[in-house]
Design a protein around this nucleic acid. Structure first.
Lengths: 245, 245
DNA sequence: GAAGGGCAGATTGTCATACCAGTTGACAAT
DNA sequence: ATTGTCAACTGGTATGACAATCTGCCCTTC
């Protein structure tokens, strides 16, 4: 089976190289970034490419660029936003960062109950119908873990829509973008959570019945199953990663 | 009193114009973006500036650019991340979007208890000391609402650090970046929440005592005070905003 | 000697132009 | 009907020049 070739533009290469050096601390926070022309020279690329990469770094709040002055490296832990998480989960070597996996699972656990609560408070019949449609497809795909995983994502997407809160929606998008990069790794681990349509159906029913507290409780119980499974899996993997150093 | 002039580069102007048209729906999701050379012509600027703006839009996941093909407008509600919130809170006209204010306050309410819980579980004595230092400064600034507001932000920042979870940290940064844009508007509204050092002290004590449930409960009670106040204020303002249309 | 103005050198910002590289679709050859 | 070719788009990269801005030093001025 052939895989699509991975194309990378010069701009992408410059962006990733600088980003990795910033998050790894090689370019320490507060220090001055080399001048654009110096970077061009050192990287052997055009100034336009460097500028485009710097614009992206600026958009991610990893660097601060001032007209006339020297650019500064920012402390990403103080300034960068949730969007950065998707780029941090894959280390420069290509492996998945276990601490980031733990982080997104925990954040998911924090958000899920509240999403369900708001959805139950604000969702209408159409939202409940959409949720039921997803659970019906889940029931039809019992055992097919990759499909169930995809459907679980769709279920949460519908639930977030029902919650009618743009901040939840955008946070969910950032979280999903990160999750997508390690989805395959978690398919088996999350089997216990995703291969149980009844639990999703119960949440949908709570939304239809406008029972906010029940919806929140059920959602919490659901994602806590996954959280426990992931942490168990990480505990088995991390020691091996430790001794690899 | 003079205010600093707001400088805006050509790239910024192009970026904001396209961004506003995308989020407002003038450029509908899925539709093709004009070619770079067409945009230069229409906007009367250089192609490099347009490209830099497009790079930022791409980084924000508002557009999809393919070498050789035509660029597409993405649906920001499906793809954009939490970082976009800070740019959405100020409408093109310059006013603050009430629904976004409600959104960040609700997301804050969802995260705060969990942040406090994790901080109590994982924080050490140094973290508790840092929290106490902030509450001491709060007590010294009783009644000075702007200062208290700033100290409250610092308190939460320390608490997030203690929680030792990068996802929480980055989500907090995104939230704060949005909050900073409407801070003045909320200073008075949040008076009841921020002008009460005892409540913050109690959370710090719970962290020191490693009492996760108490920390979570206290944090929830604290931010719910603010949430109630904000929603009350929004309810009074929104009707006026409605009739202004 | 201290304070301030102003110049020189650094930087980023913008521009114009050219050419390279990938995509698409029409069209001819097989 | 399938395949190969080519022309006309598209975005990607390169070069060089000039403008706008900041910084630090020197020099005038008091």
């Amino acid at each position: 089976m052939l895989k699509p070739v991975r194309k990378q533009s010069v701009t992408d290469a410059v962006f990733e190289q600088l980003r990795d050096q910033i998050v790894s601390g090689e370019l320490s926070p507060g220090s001055a970034l080399p001048a654009e022309r110096v970077l061009c020279e050192a990287l052997g690329v055009n100034r336009g490419s460097v500028r485009e990469a710097l614009r992206r770094l600026q958009q991610s709040r990893l660097v601060s660029v001032r007209h006339g002055g020297t650019s500064q490296v920012l402390d990403y832990r103080d300034s960068a936003g949730l969007d950065l998480l998707a780029e941090l989960i894959v280390s420069p070597g290509g492996s998945i960062d276990a601490t980031v996996v733990r982080a997104i699972i925990e954040l998911r656990s924090a958000l899920a109950p509240d999403i369900a609560r708001r959805a139950a408070e604000r969702g209408d019949a159409a939202d409940a119908d959409a949720l039921d449609a997803v659970t019906a497809r889940m029931a039809a795909r019992g055992g097919d873990l990759p499909a169930l995983q995809q459907l679980a994502v769709e279920f949460w997407s519908q639930l977030v829509d029902a919650a009618d809160n743009l901040a939840y929606r955008l946070a969910y998008n950032s979280l999903r973008a990160t999750y997508d990069q390690c989805r395959e790794l978690l398919t088996q681990v999350l089997a216990d959570e995703i291969d149980d349509p009844d639990r999703y159906r119960a949440i949908a029913a709570a939304v239809r019945g406008r029972d906010a507290e029940t919806a929140a409780r059920l959602a919490r119980e659901l994602v806590e199953r996954g959280e426990r499974a992931v942490k168990l899996a990480l505990a088995q993997i991390t020691p091996a990663a430790e001794e690899a150093r």
